[in-house]
């Protein structure tokens, strides 16, 4: 009985904390200025909030099969959120609607400039046998 009450209380705290992080992600989606910073809100507090809600659900259900399913959902979320954020960020990058003045560092532009320079220099070096 005592253990049940403690586990339910911890589950409730986890649920409320997770919902607060979901709300933080929603507020950040409204307030942040461009796609890249909104993506940060979608990738980090959202995933942590969801994991907390799943933890609360697992503490409340307390069955082996259910906990396995919830762990699976959490693992999927952890595995897929970085990939989705990477794809969205790479797609958003070359557009003009991201705020470059807010970027602290921009390693991708150096990379792209180097690739452009390489491609521009290529035809003079290997003109006869050009395989592309």
């Amino acid at each position: 009985m005592m253990l049940d009450a403690i586990l339910d209380t911890v589950a409730g705290i986890c649920l409320i904390a997770g919902a607060l992080l979901c709300l933080a992600a929603g507020i950040a989606l409204i307030r942040f200025p461009d796609v890249l910073s909104r993506m940060h809100a979608a990738a980090k507090p959202q995933v942590l909030g969801l994991l907390l809600v799943l933890l609360g659900c697992a503490l409340r259900l307390r069955t082996g099969v259910d906990i396995t399913t919830l762990v699976l959902v959490g693992l999927f979320q952890l595995a897929t959120a970085p990939v989705a954020a990477h794809m969205v960020g790479r797609t958003a990058y070359p557009h003009d609607d991201i705020r470059r003045d807010l970027l602290i560092t921009d390693e991708l532009s150096d990379h792209i400039d180097r690739i452009r320079a390489d491609r521009a220099g290529e035809p003079q070096e290997t003109s006869p046998v050009h395989t592309s």
């Binding site: 929603g26 989606l29 979608a42 809600v53 609360g56 659900c57």
Partner: peptide, 20 residues
């Protein structure tokens, strides 16, 4: 797309809360 992702995660959280 990003906001839809967040909305889906909120839906997952809501369903998990209902189950709990």
């Amino acid at each position: 797309a990003v906001a839809t992702d967040v909305l889906l995660a909120v839906a997952v959280a809501a369903i998990a809360t209902e189950a709990a």
